[in-house]
């Protein structure tokens, strides 16, 4: 479980996050939702340690992350996997080498064991025969899946996804959502997904935190979100004509 306790983040004079308190549960898909510029990416970067919050703390299974010694922080980071908005695959490496990279760095596996693990991770995300291709040779959806395979390589306890559906067609988007749910339940990971994709919100959100202008406005799940009486949340959820029509 990841607990966020009174986290505030400033960029210069500007306060981006205001006293955020929430928790992300183990074995569940936890969503952070909100409009663009609401602070959800900053919150995710605070969770993974790319930003340090000025106030508050982030606890990983009770261990405070930002005040840890660097060695412990690096050890904890080996338990994390993150899939970035643009996949962030290493351009100079093939897909096979990308997935094997965390194994090369952190394990003493033999080449055979590494190859087996790479094949297994790529199979999990339904990618075959791409080991020798470079990221530039893959489509957007395939890159995202390869990035998920790389994030899975070291068997992470915590998985982070930054806007996994952005730039993907509805069908591929659905596939990624299914994959996120499957991985979370199969490997019992604490999964945190940063999204504003309505389909993801309704179908995969087992816990949902809604951020509005840097404040945590609402927490709930995909069953309760459509019946919420929070004005800002309803504004966000029912912004699209299609969702308005479904509501009617």
């Amino acid at each position: 479980m990841i607990e966020v306790c009174s986290v505030s983040k400033y960029f210069g004079e500007k306060q981006i996050l205001h006293n955020i308190n929430t928790q992300f549960e183990e074995g569940k898909v936890n969503l952070i939702i909100g409009r663009s510029g609401s602070g959800k990416t900053v919150l995710m970067k605070c969770l993974v340690g790319l930003h340090s919050p000025e106030e508050g703390k982030v606890l990983y299974s009770g261990r405070e992350f930002h005040n840890m010694p660097d060695i412990d922080k690096q050890k904890l980071r080996t338990e994390m996997g993150m899939v970035f908005q643009g996949a962030a695959l290493f351009d100079s490496m093939t897909i096979g080498e990308n997935v094997a990279f965390p194994l090369d760095m952190f394990t003493q596996m033999s080449d055979g064991e590494k190859n087996d693990r790479v094949d297994f991770c790529l199979e999990c995300v339904d990618l075959q025969n791409v080991n020798s291709l470079y990221p530039a040779e893959l489509s957007g959806g395939m890159k995202k899946r390869a990035a998920i395979a790389r994030a899975l390589a070291c068997n992470p306890k915590y998985l982070f996804f930054d806007e996994p559906n952005s730039g993907l067609d509805p069908k591929t988007s659905l596939l990624i959502d299914e994959l996120i749910t499957k991985i979370t339940h199969d490997f019992n990971t604490t999964t945190i997904v940063n999204t504003h994709d309505m389909n993801s919100i309704i179908t995969i959100g087992e816990t949902i935190s809604f951020i509005y202008q840097g404040f945590l406005e609402w927490t709930g799940n995909s069953h309760t979100i459509l019946s919420s009486d929070n004005h800002n949340l309803n504004d966000f959820i029912f912004a699209q004509p299609l969702v308005q029509r479904i509501k009617k």
């Binding site: 340690g49 790319l50 690096q74 994390m80 908005q85 962030a88």
Partner: peptide, 10 residues
């Protein structure tokens, strides 16, 4: 974000 990816890997 490849550098961020490295950092998150530890």
């Amino acid at each position: 974000e490849q550098i961020d990816a490295l950092e998150i890997m530890g």
